[in-house]
């Protein structure tokens, strides 16, 4: 790539300097790769196809509406470039959605999960549901698969407390979405007795705390000196776990697993799903 600023000024005198198309296309390819990596387990899970058309339409609408601020937030916190303004973050979010929809259509079409003779509700429901994880994957990939620049590392270390919690939530979705739609979540909650569920809850908390702080990872969440164990445990692990459980409950409700289910079973399914989600949340700094 030769640098020829003179030609640029000659041909485009009044234009602002854009990111060149080649790097955008590279970013787009990364986004496709990320969407695929992130959502393949879900593309190949039959519950995801079925839930696409059996779930209540309003819940799908809510999921799609929530996706937009989630992606914009993700772009702000961990986008692959430090975007100049909110406008650029919004653009990034919609690019991720476009990538997700195209990828879902292609893969589901090849799998014959989608075909032309299916009614619109079935086709759109399946695509819309798969687009949710795929769009998150597309957004993350631009960061994950790209080389980490020193600036993006700086931004990660300089994250505010709400941003940290937001990233934990995304980490919870990262692992939790793979298993949340499956029958096994409910089945496990039927199989486990209350003592095992309490044990799982405690194990989730311990592992979460271990992941966040005992592991000194490059993200740099190293606690500032003088902050006590309890302060960190309460501010990050416990608050993080509460966020995780809220996300689990929302996912279970979205996938129709809470309908007509008793409170005790809902709680235990939430704790079961909370296990992978807690690991995902705690490891968010490592894997996102």
């Amino acid at each position: 790539m030769t640098v020829d600023t003179g030609r640029a000024e000659a041909t485009l005198p009044d234009r602002p300097v854009y990111e060149d198309n080649r790097s955008f296309l590279v970013g787009l390819a990364r986004a496709f790769a990320g969407a695929l990596i992130f959502s393949l387990p879900m593309l190949m899970t039959m519950e995801m196809w079925w839930i696409g058309f059996t779930m209540a339409s309003w819940r799908l609408v809510l999921l799609l509406v929530l996706l937009i601020p989630l992606l914009v937030g993700l772009s702000v916190v961990s986008g692959f470039k430090s975007t100049a303004s909110l406008r650029d973050d919004i653009a990034d979010a919609f690019v991720a959605i476009a990538v997700a929809v195209v990828m879902s259509v292609v893969i589901l079409g090849i799998f014959k999960v989608l075909s032309v003779d299916m009614p619109a509700r079935e086709v759109i429901g399946k695509i819309a549901l798969q687009s949710f994880p795929a769009a998150i994957g597309a957004m993350l990939a631009r960061d994950q698969l790209g080389e980490k620049s020193s600036e993006s590392m700086q931004r990660q270390t300089a994250m505010s407390y709400p941003q940290e919690l937001f990233l934990m939530g995304v980490g919870a979705l990262f692992l939790g979405l793979n298993v949340a739609p499956t029958e096994e979540m409910v089945l496990l909650s039927y199989m486990m007795d209350p003592w095992r569920e309490i044990a799982l809850l405690l194990l989730s908390l311990v592992l979460m705390h271990a992941f966040v702080y005992a592991v000194e990872f490059p993200g740099g969440a190293k606690p500032p000196g003088g902050v006590g164990f309890w302060s960190l445990f309460l501010r990050f692990t416990v608050v993080g776990y509460v966020i995780v459980l809220a996300i689990c409950l929302y996912l279970l409700w979205t996938f129709g697993r809470t309908d007509g289910t008793g409170l005790a079973e809902i709680i235990s399914a939430t704790v079961v799903l909370g296990f992978p989600c807690a690991i995902g949340a705690a490891a968010a700094r490592l894997i996102l």
């Binding site: 602002p16 300097v17 854009y18 990111e19 060149d20 198309n21 955008f24 296309l25 787009l28 692959f80 470039k81 430090s82 975007t83 100049a84 406008r87 650029d88 919004i90 653009a91 990034d92 979010a93 919609f94 690019v95 991720a96 959605i97 476009a98 990538v99 929809v101 620049s149 600036e151 993006s152």
Partner: peptide, 17 residues
């Protein structure tokens, strides 16, 4: 990396999304 403004091509993709 710094922040170049979103390119027209990216806006097209964003519009599609």
């Amino acid at each position: 990396e710094h922040a170049p403004p979103t390119s027209p091509l990216e806006w097209v993709a964003a519009g599609l999304g």
